[in-house]
Nucleic acid binder design. Structure first.
Length: 535
RNA sequence: GCGGGUGUAGCUCAAUGGCAGAGCUCCAGCCUUCCAAGCUGGUGGUGAGGGUUCGAUUCCCUUCACCCGCUCCA
């Protein structure tokens, strides 16, 4: 299966277009066409229905530790700038960073200091994170590099005082803070991953704001509002679907990495003691959802992060990944991350940005010893009125990409098979085998030929079905051609009015995947389609 | 961010320093009783900007986008 065919079909049939195409396009931005907008809306609606509005909050669902509540939310894209400082996005997304190719560690360009040092006829610049211990660390690094014992430390000659790495132009002679070889640091790169804008007519820095890089923070800051307005007890999930923006360095692979994208996120709040069980529940539940929507088992995997990849407070993170056609053999791309986030987010919005490297989590301090970013000071903890226990809830976060899911469904659906034409000759048929729930058009209605009263009957059926589903009417050309067109659009059912229909009030219902036709009474068409979609 | 490639009609592909062509698609009409049939007619194109030239889709420069490899990826 090659990606070009899928991209071509998406363009040809109106699933996806390049943004601003008549002006040459814009990297990292994509538009959904008439079929695409229906498909993506169906993806989001299926998720919302299955996770939120259709949620059974009375029973204990299979695999769940208990029953739980689910609520929805729709927050603004631009939020108070302090939100991103306490969430950590500001620090993470807004600095010049250097990466070490050897150790894969990343440092802020302006937070590495270093000194020139010479020994054994070689002069290098050793670096260390700025701080009280930087001198000791640099000495240790230098001696290790030059293979000099501690007792001979006078063999190395320091040249000049400690200076910031920002003063150094070429990194060829620079030794990274944890590296063994020279020149492993990349050029400093600006991580300006948040789109910046200005609130108010004046564009001064005091009005600076950001387009959200994730929908999650809107949920955290509204946690108390939702809790107070719904009378819910924990455990409770809050769901949100909405646009997010990241100024990705390298957008690529069709819509997979876009700069404007839509997320479907749940923040699930629970008691710390139960968080591990809830993590497993959500991980398994979300994987199953993709299966239920038609993604086959061998192209979908769940990858648990290794311990080293996890923030220390997290019990686990699992990525649900799909084998996209543009990925190398055996490689997968992330559809959704299910993360155990502990109480990091709520506490950061209460107390101020926490330091992820501490255990237990403590307030991150600035150079002046004061909290780096102040929190809201509002109490976001929860009092269980049954046990009278007060605690800060732990959070499980299933965070899905609506565009990535849509793309995966498109890729999974794309099929080429062979079907005989009216002369019995085999022809390649392109068919989008989308799950009926996701299909943009649920059914197409055709008169077999454009005469003998068939169009009139077909139009009546069309208008009747239109009240319930997105249906499509077509009377032009040969019926076989009309079937093929619907195959490419992913329409699961075609209803054809023929001569018999006029006398016995039945039509044929043609199945997209099996090509089978069954006769159905006109009065029962709506119900038959409804049953098949819900299967 | 680096290197390589590509850009001609909705799609697949031709051609040329001098009127840009075909097949399929699409549209209209005729015909047509179940899987891209047939006949007639029709619409439609050189990614953008600049330069060289009498004349550029073709040569040169810039730019944009896409693809491949590396890099990166909350």
């Amino acid at each position: 299966m090659d990606m070009d065919s899928i991209v071509s079909l998406c363009k040809r049939r109106g699933f996806l277009f390049q943004s601003s195409e008549i002006y040459g396009g814009l990297q990292g931005f994509w538009d959904y066409g008439p079929l695409g907008v229906e498909l993506k809306r169906n993806v989001k609606n299926a998720w919302w229905q299955d996770m939120v509005s259709g949620h059974d909050d009375i029973s204990t669902l299979p695999g769940a530790p208990s029953s739980y509540a689910m609520e929805g939310l729709d927050c603004t894209i631009i939020m108070h700038p302090q939100v991103w400082k306490c969430s950590g996005h500001y620090d993470l997304f807004h600095d010049f960073m250097v990466d070490c190719r050897e150790t894969k560690k990343r440092y802020r360009h302006d937070q590495l200091n270093g000194r020139w040092v010479e020994a054994k006829g070689q002069k290098i610049f050793v670096t260390a994170p700025a701080g009280d211990e930087e001198q000791a660390v640099m000495e240790k690094q230098a001696m290790k590099f030059f293979k000099i014992r501690a007792k001979n430390k006078d063999d190395i000659q320091w040249d000049g005082a400690s200076t910031c790495l920002t003063e150094i132009d070429s990194f060829a002679e620079v030794l990274g803070p944890d590296a063994k070889t020279l020149g492993t640091l990349t050029e400093p790169r600006e991580f300006n991953l948040m789109f910046k804008t200005y609130v108010g007519a004046l564009s001064g820095e005091e009005g600076a704001a950001f387009l959200r890089p994730e929908t999650a923070q809107g949920i955290f800051v509204n946690f108390k509002n939702v809790l107070d307005s719904t009378r819910n007890r924990l455990p409770m999930g809050i769901a949100q679907i909405g646009k997010s923006f990241r100024n990705e360095i390298t957008p690529r692979n069709f819509t997979f990495r876009s700069r404007e994208f839509e997320q479907m996120e749940i923040e699930f709040f629970c008691h710390p003691d139960k968080s591990q069980e809830w993590y497993r529940y959500w991980r398994d539940r979300r994987l199953q959802w993709y299966h239920d929507m038609g993604i086959s088992g061998d192209r979908l995997i769940m990858r648990e992060h290794h311990k080293e990849e996890l923030a220390h407070y997290s019990i686990g993170t699992a990525d649900i990944e799909y084998a996209f056609p543009f990925m190398a053999e055996g490689e997968f791309g992330e559809l959704e991350g299910v993360a155990h986030r502990g109480d990091f987010d709520l506490r950061s919005h209460m107390e101020g940005k926490l330091d992820e490297k501490t255990d237990p989590l403590t307030l991150q301090l600035g150079e002046d010893g004061k909290p780096k970013w102040k929190g809201s000071g509002k109490d976001l903890s929860y009092r269980d009125d049954l046990t009278n226990e007060k605690y800060t809830p732990h959070v499980i976060e299933p965070s899905a990409g609506a565009d990535r899911a849509t793309l995966a469904f498109l890729c999974e659906a794309y099929t080429e098979d062979s079907a005989p034409d009216d002369k019995g000759k085999m022809q390649t048929r392109t068919v989008m085998k989308l799950h009926p729930r996701l299909a943009p058009i649920k059914a197409a209605v055709f008169p077999l030929v454009k005469k003998d009263g068939m169009p009139e009957v077909a139009k009546d059926i069309y208008l009747d079905l239109k009240k319930h589903f997105n249906v499509f009417y077509d009377e032009k050309g040969a019926v076989g051609r009309r079937y093929r067109r619907q195959d490419e659009a992913g329409t699961p059912y075609c209803i054809t009015v023929d001569g018999e229909s006029l006398t016995d009030k039945t039509v044929t219902l043609r199945d997209r995947d099996s090509l089978e036709q069954v006769r159905v009474k006109i009065d029962e068409v709506e119900q038959v389609i409804r049953e098949r979609i819900d299967e």
